[in-house]
Amino acid sequence: MKFAVIGGTGLIGSQVVRNLNAAGHETVAHSKSTGVDVISGRGLDEAVAGADVVVNLTNSPTFDEASPAFFRTSMDNLLAAAERAGVGHVVILSIVGTDRVPQLDYYRAKALQEEILAAGPLPYSIVRATQFMDFVDAILSWTAEGDTVRLPATPIQPIASKDVAEAVALVAAGTPLNGIRNIAGPEVFPLDELGRITLAAKGDHRTVVTDPTAGMFAAVPGDVLTDRNARLAPTRYADWLS
């Protein structure tokens, strides 16, 4: 099959492209750097021409109130181009629990992206993943000050990006789900404890203080960022760290 991966040069996209090509498919990565702009629409028709499947892994440049507009415009442009090209399957990557945290602009934006795809004209699949192991350092940096990192005890079920890419490639090469597949890491940690594990593994002597008001994930209720019934990826966090 022929695949067009929009956002195919990023963390997940580049791995999805490699996985699909390794499986014998014809896969092309597209991004702003290759002349494809999902907001203006520039290059989209050319990118999806002849593709059996389009995988959209583009992301909003911000996590704030501007993110819903990004996903609305980008999805409208992409679906229009894909329909003109006769594409048979459109795949996006989303977040476990994205429809259960409306108080966060970015999660509300990802829920909107899902809604636009599901209401669109083409067969589709949505892969929802839990938080990436690769982003834990960034999460720590949001609330770091001096020798202290403040984190809530929000339950997190981290997944390795390579496992996410494998799952996305598998779904993209299969029959459209016309629905959602949840994927998650094999372990659940309170975020504050995950911070302590991460700093200790790196020899970082900063102290993690449990603060239920600290950072973006303080707004997340209960365990909505975890899913023990999801398809569990194999990589454990300690193995990823090592």
Rank of each mutant, 00 (worst) to 15 (best):
186 P>F: 11
205 H>D: 15
205 H>K: 15
54 V>E: 12
30 H>I: 03
13 G>D: 05
99 D>C: 05
152 P>M: 10
170 L>T: 15
70 F>A: 01
239 D>W: 06
189 F>P: 03
210 T>S: 14
80 A>M: 03
142 W>M: 15
112 L>N: 03
29 A>G: 12
82 A>F: 05
190 P>T: 08
205 H>L: 09
119 A>M: 07
191 L>I: 00
95 I>A: 11
128 R>V: 05
121 P>M: 06
72 R>L: 00
100 R>D: 12
126 I>T: 11
112 L>M: 13
180 I>N: 05
82 A>K: 02
30 H>Y: 15
193 E>T: 06
94 S>P: 10
8 G>W: 07
202 K>I: 00
189 F>T: 04
33 S>I: 03
44 L>Y: 12
135 F>C: 00
165 A>H: 07
139 I>H: 08
84 R>M: 07
212 P>M: 12
15 Q>F: 01
15 Q>V: 05
140 L>S: 10
195 G>Y: 04
134 D>M: 02
67 S>P: 01
176 P>N: 06
159 I>G: 08
30 H>Q: 11
39 I>K: 00
89 H>P: 04
132 F>V: 06
161 S>H: 13
36 V>I: 07
100 R>H: 13
188 V>Y: 01
151 L>V: 13
16 V>E: 09
156 I>K: 09
188 V>W: 02
145 E>N: 15
48 V>R: 09
217 F>K: 08
134 D>S: 14
189 F>D: 03
79 L>G: 00
28 V>W: 03
64 D>N: 11
15 Q>W: 01
137 D>W: 06
27 T>A: 15
92 I>K: 09
125 S>K: 08
211 D>K: 02
230 A>H: 05
69 A>W: 00
154 T>W: 11
220 V>T: 07
114 E>R: 05
90 V>C: 06
94 S>I: 05
72 R>P: 00
142 W>H: 14
72 R>W: 00
228 R>N: 09
3 F>T: 04
72 R>F: 00
167 A>N: 02
166 E>P: 00
1 M>E: 14
102 P>Q: 10
75 M>N: 12
77 N>Y: 08
23 A>G: 12
9 T>W: 02
10 G>M: 05
177 L>D: 02
74 S>I: 05
51 A>E: 04
163 D>V: 10
119 A>R: 13
42 R>S: 12
29 A>P: 12
220 V>Y: 02
39 I>A: 06
123 P>C: 10
25 H>E: 11
188 V>S: 06
7 G>L: 08
83 E>Q: 14
139 I>P: 06
131 Q>K: 03
241 L>S: 11
173 A>W: 03
39 I>P: 00
81 A>W: 00
39 I>C: 05
191 L>A: 08
234 P>N: 08
74 S>K: 01
230 A>C: 04
141 S>Q: 15
20 L>D: 12
231 R>V: 09
128 R>Y: 02
160 A>K: 06
46 E>T: 14
29 A>R: 09
144 A>G: 04
164 V>I: 13
115 E>V: 02
187 E>I: 02
68 P>A: 01
61 P>W: 01
230 A>L: 04
188 V>G: 06
156 I>Q: 13
81 A>I: 02
149 V>L: 14
82 A>S: 14
55 V>S: 02
